[in-house]
Amino acid sequence: MKNKLLLLVAILTLTTITVNAKSKVTCAGSTTVLPIAQATAEAFMDAHPDINISIRGGGSGVGIAALINNSVDIALSSRPMKSKEISQAKAKGINPVPYAIALDGIAVIVHPSNTISNITISQIRDIYTGKIKNWKELGGPNLPIVVISRDVSSGTFEVFNEKVMAGAKVSSSAQLLASNNAVTNTVADTPGAIGYAGVGFVSNKVKALVVEKVLPSEKTVQDGTYILSRKLYMYTNGKATGAVSSYIAFIQSPQGQKIVKEQGFIPLQ
């Protein structure tokens, strides 16, 4: 009995030592970047059992604040740092360095039977604020528009809100659905519907609109001509070194970018 106990203690001590020997990488920030960070971290840790990556959400602002307080190694951000945040960081002796890890584009989608195929940002805004209520106002069929939006705390809504709404409020009669898939399925079933979803989620059951004369695709998001897109970043304090650097290099590698694509985002190249 006593021997067994000793053995147990020995094993426990050994495991603690090995855990301590692991290098730890901590990340926090944007919930949009979170799925990419999680999926790539899992693949990366499989290949590097000596590195342990822990990831928290909280939003871009929270992640950047944590980097400024030096409590995380990597801040996940769906936007470039604001000048105010950079000066805060400098004041604390932190030197934030951005690494682009993926692209995020959202497509505006309608039912395949809809004759409209071009739309402008201001027309989309008027539809979502409730100013335009029928497709015929845009030269389409005489059909009331069913406005479909995403839940207000989702990352997809965040891009849409920033790039399209520009401070205006989405009409209260808009339907708010809980996922990219729910939006595409509902638009596919509803002739009068308009919705938006990550470019990676658009299937042939719905029609993606040409926005400001550019059709959303992997290519137009990558070359920056499609307007409803953004870069996703990881910020580190100073140039990344050691485990942090190899993790970021993994995400930027072809293997990591393949995972980015699987998560519904767009690879950098």
Partner: peptide, 27 residues
């Protein structure tokens, strides 16, 4: 349907308390 409005007919989308909590709490 999840539209935060007072429905004018029984065929309009609504947004109950429970689904609001479930949809927004995650993030």
């Amino acid at each position: 349907g999840g539209a935060a409005q007072i429905p004018k007919s029984i065929f309009e989308p609504v947004r109950p308390l429970t689904s609001t909590i479930a949809a927004e709490m995650g993030e």
